[in-house]
Design a binder for these strands. Structure first.
Lengths: 253, 253
DNA sequence: GGGAAAAAAACGAGCGCTCGCTCAAAAAAT
DNA sequence: ATTTTTTGAGCGAGCGCTCGTTTTTTTCCC
């Protein structure tokens, strides 16, 4: 435990150098555990969360969020009643309302953490990959899969409930999605410019890569049932994409 | 008009021969217009639909279904109230209930037409493609895109509301999805067996093709905004897939 | 062809219920 | 003793659904 904490504070620099290679390596770079996210959530919403003691607030928040994600992903956020949520999280109706002031706020709080996680994990690719777009593309695919693996219920929630967001939230989701796609198409454009591969249509190809990344968390159950690990999925997607863009296998590997 | 009907009854045999090439060609093979689907719907539910006159029933059904798909795809089936639906479709609450006996039945009626459409359009690939798996794969991709283009709101509905189905419906959706994937992986396996291309992992590759096909109707708005036509999307997906499975471009084209 | 009788279709207020949400009081922590 | 946290019955609104009634269409006899 102490050791793990130490290694989390002094991370290996694998992500910085652009070689993540495994889910574990990714997870030792970033703390996207339920508790850590809920702690950040508390910071961001000190004004609406009426519970004073941080350690109590974080604990209860974690139970609320976990139950919300479970119930929503099973039958939809709108179909989940707050009475169900109270039962599942072991709190009373009233207690729930010390953590959010409306059901919509709860939804937006979760969305906020998802989009913040995307920014912090994908926002700044390691500088060492600045002039190696092929490896930068791989890094993007890897990091995306490992991030969404770590926060799978969160991403599934954001994906499924996006259309129910109050307008503000829908736009945030759209912007976040376009930003990810832009990272991909930038890398692709760079690959083309350096003549490391040929891509007939950069924009459209980037658009097609997105659903490959999304499928990992949207259909997570299917892949689990078939015994596909995150690492195998990264391998498959990378191979698929690199084949599709006529990149010679082994090039710059 | 008379000419169009005649040509619909005596279709060109493009789909049968495995060359669909365009959305229009597909649509002249199969009638997946709102009215035609609602007519089939009426046949299938004569016992629950209490309206006697077929032409009245079909007209009203079309308005109900169209409004249901519009409202549901905007904010979710569960969030759509029957009062909203009554207003949008121009019927009264009571009139709605002559066409279905519960909100869940309405959902299942729509799902039924979607899964029936999949069977009839993808169920039996043209016999002429039996021993040409590369062209069969292309036919599958094309036909899937053109089918889902023609019935986009239906497919989006089925995709988004799948988890809300009463168990029976959820399994139907799952079976239908797996069947499509099986068609793809059969073609892929055949391609490999005939050594026309190399695919590292047939199952996983087939699984990755599925989200490419789904993206067309799930994110239809994005592609419309960018001016991507169904034909261009077919072209892009075909190229992407054939590149990924190391098929030489131009082979058997 | 026209008008009364019968059949079909549409109507919408109202039912029982559950929803999101509140707040006075109890319980727990300090 | 005082503050913090939790409780859960209760509120009005809105839900899916029903059914007595009205409106529209069809039938049929003269």
């Amino acid at each position: 435990m102490a050791f793990e904490l130490a290694s989390a504070r002094e991370p290996n620099s694998s992500a910085r150098s652009g070689n993540i290679v495994s889910l574990k390596a990714f997870q030792s770079e970033y703390d996207f555990s339920l508790e850590a996210i809920c702690a950040r959530m508390l910071d961001r919403h000190r004004d609406t969360i009426r519970t004073q003691k941080p350690h109590i607030a974080v604990t209860k928040l974690a139970r609320i969020i976990q139950s919300t994600l479970m119930l929503s992903n099973r039958k939809g956020f709108h179909s989940m009643s707050l009475r169900e949520l109270a039962t599942a999280s072991g709190l009373s109706m009233g207690a729930l309302y010390t953590y959010f002031d409306s059901k919509d706020t709860l939804l937006m709080m979760i969305l906020g953490e998802v989009s913040s996680a995307v920014s912090s994990a994908l926002g700044c690719p390691p500088a060492s990959l600045a002039d190696d777009p092929v490896r930068r593309l791989r890094w993007l695919l890897e990091t995306h899969v490992y991030l969404t693996e770590t926060m799978q219920p969160w991403f599934l929630f954001a994906y499924m409930e996006a259309k129910a967001f109050p307008k503000e939230g829908r736009e945030k989701a759209r912007r976040s999605e376009l930003a990810t796609e832009a990272l991909i198409s930038d890398a692709l454009a760079d690959v083309v410019q350096r003549k490391q591969a040929s891509v007939p249509n950069v924009e459209l190809t980037a658009a097609l890569i997105k659903p490959l990344l999304q499928d990992w968390y949207v259909k997570r159950g299917k892949y689990r049932r078939r015994g596909v690990t995150p690492e195998q999925y990264v391998e498959a997607v990378t191979g698929f994409v690199e084949g599709a863009i006529s990149l010679r296998r082994g090039m710059s590997r």
